[in-house]
Design a protein around this nucleic acid. Sequence first.
DNA 1: GTGAATTGATTACAATTGTAAACGAAGGGG
DNA 2: CCCCTTCGTTTACAATTGTAATCAATTCAC
Lengths: 161, 161
Amino acid sequence: MSTEIDLKITDSEWEIMRVVWAQKEVTSKEIIEVLQQKKDWKPATTKTFIGRLANKDMLDTRTEGRRYIYSPKVNEEKVVKSALHEQFNHICNRDVGNTIAYLLSNATLSLKDIEKLEGVLEEKKKDAVEEVACNCIPGQCECKSHHCSKDTCRERNLKKE
Amino acid sequence: MSTEIDLKITDSEWEIMRVVWAQKEVTSKEIIEVLQQKKDWKPATTKTFIGRLANKDMLDTRTEGRRYIYSPKVNEEKVVKSALHEQFNHICNRDVGNTIAYLLSNATLSLKDIEKLEGVLEEKKKDAVEEVACNCIPGQCECKSHHCSKDTCRERNLKKE
DNA sequence: GTGAATTGATTACAATTGTAAACGAAGGGG
DNA sequence: CCCCTTCGTTTACAATTGTAATCAATTCAC
C-alpha cells in the first residue's frame, strides 16, 4: 500500500506549481503577480487553483502571521517524468526511438547537452535489443493486428477477398 | 485563418484513436472488441467516445450499408507530437536536454534506434548553442527569478536581510 | 478603534470528461 | 410481415476543470 500521491495535474495547475517550484516558498500574492504576466486570470482564479492544489496535497502551507507561505509538496522532476511516461504510454514501444529522435531534432541543445546525450546513448548500446518488442494490445497498433477469429471481423474478411 | 483542428484528446479518446489509427478502417464493433481486452468499458461507453471523436472531427465516417466505417481524420504522428510539445512547454528550455536524457535512459532501444539517434545528435552539433536560453517568464523557473521591485515581495525582502 | 484593504475559504456555474442506459431506425430470421 | 438484434444517437449524471464573485476574518492605516 504505497501512499502514492496522484501526480497528475491540470494545465492551469502546472502554472501555479511552476511558480512554487521556482521560488520554493511563496505567498499567494506573489503567485498571482507572476502569473499576471502570462495568464489572463483574475486574482480570484489563481486563488482557486492554489486552493485546489493545497487540497490535493501538492502544496504545503505554512502559516506566517495570518497568511500562508506555500511550498511544493511534490517534486517537480517526478511530476514531469510522470507526465512524460503517460505520454509515452500512448505510443508503441517500437516507436519510442523515433519519437525521441523527433524531440531531439526539435530541441535547442548546448554542446554540453549533446555530450551528455551521447554518453547516455553509449551506455544504451550495452543493453540495446535486436528489435524492440511491441507492447500494445492486439488491435491497437500496427505491429500486432488483432487477428480476430470472428466472421464479423472486417479486417479478417478483407483478407479473405 | 488556419482551420487547425484542435489536436488535444483525452486519455479515453486516445484508446479509441489508437485502434482507428492501427486499423485504418474499423467498425464500432471492432473498436469495442479490441478495447474490451484493455479497458473495463461497457460497449455503450466506447460508443460515447466514438461519437464524441466524430463530433470533434477526429474521425471520418463512411457509410457501408447501414453502419459506419470509421477512419482517422487526423494523423497519429501529429497528435503525438502536439501532445509532447505541450508537455515540454511545462519545462524550461534549459532542462530539455536533461529531460530527453532521462527519456533515453528509460527507453528500450535497438541498435538501429541508437544509431539513428547518434545521427541526429551529430547533426545537432552544428547548431548547438553555447548555453540554452531560458524561455520562462520571470518567477516561473529558477533561471530568472522574478526580481520584484515591490516592498511586498517576499523574495526581495529575504535578500535584504 | 473604525473603516479600508488583504487573503484564505466558500459558493457558483458552465464546459469537459468518464461512465453508461435508453431510444429509435434499420436489417435479418423465420 | 413481425420480432429480435444491431448500431448510431440522445439523454443522464457525477466528477473534474476553468473561471470567478462573494464572504468572513484579519490587519493596517489613520
